[in-house]
């Protein structure tokens, strides 16, 4: 199996996700199977193939540096669970 329980816990921690022991085992199995399957690709010889940095055959999509109207403060905060003094309010950030 390519994915350990430690891998799952580590990634879960980075993503701020919490799992029970059973869930960690299940995820290690399931995600491991997915990764193992993707691993088949490495059987191909890709020495001559250029790395794909982007899947679209597009380049240099730019925008002119011209200001357009913004949202109002009320619109910006409309979906905020909590706000104060024109700002988004979030749980206190520990310094």
């Amino acid at each position: 199996m390519s994915l350990t329980r430690e891998d799952v816990t580590y990634v879960a921690n980075l993503a701020r996700l919490e799992f029970s022991d059973d869930e960690v085992t299940a995820l290690a199995d399931q995600l491991g199977a997915v990764l193992d399957y993707a691993q088949t690709l490495s059987e191909l010889d890709t020495k001559e193939v250029k790395a794909t940095e982007h899947v679209l055959q597009l380049k240099n999509v730019f925008r002119e540096d011209v200001v357009k109207p913004c949202l109002t403060n009320e619109q910006a905060l409309a979906n905020a669970p909590d706000s104060e003094a024109g700002c988004f309010k979030v749980p206190r950030v520990m310094e």
Binding site: A85, G86, C87, F88, K89, V90, P91, R92
Partner: peptide, 8 residues
Amino acid sequence: SSEGTLVD
């Protein structure tokens, strides 16, 4: 804010 952090 006393009970939270404000974001701009």
